[in-house]
Simulated scan of single mutants.
Amino acid sequence: MTGKVEGKIAVITGAASGMGASVARLMHANGAYLVLADISDGVMAIADELGDRAAAIVGDVGNSADANAMVDLAVSRFGGVDILCNIAGYTGDDRGTLVDCSVENFDKMVAVNFRGPFMTMKAAIPHMIARGGGSIVNVASTAAIKGYPSLVVYGGSKAGLVAITRGAAVEFAKQNIRVNVICPGPHETPMLLAAVEANPASREKIIGGVPMGRLGKPDEIAQAIYFYASDASAFITGTILPVEGGQTA
């Protein structure tokens, strides 16, 4: 594995399954200390699986107290924060048009996809400064950089995450804090597979929009997140990396 995270302390949201669990396993295998956070108590099983150097916390990143508690656990258990991976996301309960989207659904998407990363970044950055720097990896979506019917509000919430990533990258560059964002296309995550199960015909339509002709795998996103988190990307900040099989080419 190119790039080191050995001895680094990482907070990973959305770590109970999919991309988050893949990143957790990869970082742990390469020597990182982890705080794994998720709204699902399945995150406890991932921490138990990894054993030493892993702790878990159940919480909602959209809740400011929960977001702060995730960072606080890393500080109290391991002594600080070097890496923050904001992977938790929410696509919405109603997948209709902008007009169809309820205000409640809008609020929840913004809370998880935009407010949550804002809160964890706000909490983690002072600890990173105290340790001489750090790396923040935010996970947005191709919907943040390309329009998709039925994903208008979701895309808007993720576009906000792209913007805050770039601004924070400039704002904290002199403190040696790197902030980058990954925009995944369709991947075989529980969130997408649940949507496909509800509408089986959508699978072929989704794959048809990917030039490489397949869905991505969580491990493929994990490799990209690991690169940004590790010292292999020491001179990279404020960038947007689509990982989507050519979908936005």
Results as ranks from 00 to 15, higher is better:
205 K>F: 12
105 N>Y: 10
30 N>F: 01
110 V>A: 12
165 T>Q: 07
20 G>P: 07
29 A>L: 03
7 G>F: 05
158 K>Y: 02
234 A>H: 13
111 A>C: 03
110 V>E: 04
154 Y>F: 13
32 A>C: 05
203 R>C: 03
198 A>D: 13
84 L>C: 00
57 I>T: 02
92 G>W: 03
159 A>N: 11
48 D>M: 11
196 V>W: 02
89 G>M: 04
107 D>R: 15
222 A>K: 07
100 D>S: 12
197 E>I: 07
201 A>N: 14
29 A>P: 04
112 V>I: 14
70 M>T: 07
112 V>R: 09
9 I>A: 06
201 A>T: 13
214 R>L: 09
87 I>M: 04
118 F>D: 10
150 S>F: 14
94 D>A: 14
225 I>C: 11
8 K>D: 01
22 S>R: 10
118 F>E: 07
38 D>I: 11
177 I>M: 07
62 G>M: 06
72 D>T: 15
218 P>Q: 04
36 L>S: 04
222 A>P: 06
133 G>K: 02
8 K>T: 06
218 P>D: 03
121 M>F: 09
186 P>W: 08
182 I>W: 00
119 M>E: 14
223 Q>K: 15
194 A>G: 11
154 Y>W: 02
86 N>E: 07
88 A>T: 06
44 M>V: 13
163 A>Q: 14
25 R>F: 01
188 E>H: 04
166 R>G: 06
220 E>I: 00
209 G>H: 05
163 A>V: 09
147 G>I: 11
204 E>A: 15
42 G>M: 03
122 K>R: 15
216 G>Y: 00
84 L>T: 10
18 G>L: 08
30 N>S: 12
7 G>M: 05
205 K>D: 12
86 N>R: 08
51 G>F: 08
122 K>S: 13
196 V>A: 02
30 N>P: 08
178 R>F: 06
168 A>Q: 09
128 M>G: 05
110 V>T: 13
192 L>S: 04
152 V>W: 09
